[in-house]
Design a protein around this nucleic acid. Structure first.
Lengths: 163, 163
DNA sequence: GATGAAAGTAAGCGACG
DNA sequence: CGTCGCTTACTTTCATC
């Protein structure tokens, strides 16, 4: 069994025109604005705006719309990056790892990396104790894990970018 | 001059009740649904739903709504994590660093960390060449930077979590 | 493809239970 | 909090260019 990757599902990459790019940029900044407001900001008719956005979703350019939550306001005031080094890892094992990590409570994201560490887990917990438990219970003693290193996140800033 | 941090602006942390938590979870998954749909999913009246969501915004629990974009569909197919170690860094310098990093093109997020590296920059570029240029032009030769290490991101998965 | 106007829905608000 | 009723505003469709 092979993991289904996003690239396989997505249409061939038609280039985006200026309007597409404008809409993407506006929506990446603030997706709460109404279609009407958005259309005015982009200088097109509302119906055009709506059609473009639907197309962007269909083509897989816009993958979702999410509310951004402040973890500390949810009682998850301890945010960390956990670096993981694997023993030689096989593809099938990785697919399972990916699935399991993404389902763990408090996990914000997981990244498969090149370099000194193989995997990075971005996680939010309610306390240092809970962070320790998370690392020990869910990461350290997992088969295939050679080494784990935990860094606290003191401050987060988002770029102009995407995702 | 001191940087204004989000914590300073936010009200005292009133505990969230079950409804608040449900709404936060639903909106973190998909913030594109209408208030009406959301109210039905949460099992409350539309007016209640609307009031709660506004309160969550006011209290700083929901900090924004963003469209999630697939970087490779924007021509930014090379995603990386760049680890940065500082020379002894002063608070004022850090405030400036934070501001500058967050404005660089392609930057998805920046994280101030404890541990072996002081800072982590999550970035998307259009090619390996562009990544090299980004690192050399914007990070390596910046004053205060002692060492930079770059890891490619092979795969990203999002958790059930937040942000 | 884009447009503007018409028909269909939802949001927002106040008063009340 | 939930409901009702109402006004305003937005979304969505469709004929047309």
């Amino acid at each position: 069994m092979t993991a289904v990757r996003r690239e396989d599902l997505v249409q061939e990459m038609q280039p985006l025109d200026d309007l597409d790019r404008t809409l993407v940029r506006l929506l990446a900044e603030d997706a709460a604005r109404s279609n009407k407001t958005l259309a005015r900001a982009a200088g097109v008719a509302e119906s055009t705006c709506l059609n473009r956005i639907r197309a962007l979703r269909r083509r897989g350019v816009i993958t979702g719309v999410r509310a951004e939550i402040a973890p500390e306001q949810l009682g998850l005031g301890v945010v960390a990056m956990v670096f993981v080094r694997f023993h030689a890892q096989q593809r099938t094992q990785f697919a399972q790892w990916r699935r399991e990590i993404s389902a763990l409570p408090g996990v914000i994201a997981g990244y498969h990396l090149s370099g000194a560490y193989d995997y990075l887990v971005h996680v939010a917990t309610e306390s240092p104790d809970a962070l320790r438990d998370f690392v020990l219970d869910h990461l350290s003693h997992r088969p295939g894990v050679a080494r784990v290193e935990t860094s606290l996140v003191f401050d987060t800033v988002r770029g102009p970018g995407l995702v």
